[in-house]
Amino acid sequence: MATTAFVVRDSAGLMGSVALGAALSGGQYAWTLPFAWLSFSFFAPAPTSTPMQVATWMLLPPGAAAGTWTALALTVVGTAAYAVAGPRR
């Protein structure tokens, strides 16, 4: 079972990722950015460095700072991009 903090963090980050995907490639392909990122996370090397922790933020435990900050950044940037540009047509 996942903790509430894990679910909230990942849901917020994925929402921002989908919003960013919609702004970049349109609503029809908005799912590709979060799907590709999650797919990469499964095959990436162990997250021992900060860049790898950022790349695998979805799989980090809820207390990991890199995971929390990456999710927060994706939420803010994705929501702002979607609010300003809307979905690409």
Results as ranks from 00 to 15, higher is better:
M1W: 11
A2G: 04
A2M: 04
A2Q: 05
T3R: 07
T4C: 05
A5D: 05
F6S: 13
F6H: 13
F6Q: 14
V8M: 04
R9Q: 07
D10S: 14
D10Q: 11
G13R: 08
G13A: 02
L20K: 09
L20T: 01
S25N: 09
Q28W: 14
A30M: 08
P34M: 06
A36V: 09
W37L: 15
W37R: 13
L38F: 14
S41M: 02
F43I: 14
A44C: 11
A44Q: 11
A46T: 05
P47L: 05
T48M: 01
S49C: 04
T50I: 12
M52S: 02
Q53Y: 03
V54Q: 01
A55F: 10
T56C: 12
G63C: 00
A65T: 11
A66N: 05
W69A: 14
W69P: 00
T70W: 10
L72I: 12
A73S: 13
A73Y: 06
V76L: 14
G78Q: 02
A80Q: 03
A81V: 06
A81Q: 04
A81P: 07
Y82K: 10
Y82L: 15
A83N: 02
A83F: 09
V84A: 13
A85Y: 15
G86I: 02
P87I: 00
P87Q: 14
R88C: 01
R88P: 01
R89I: 07
R89W: 10
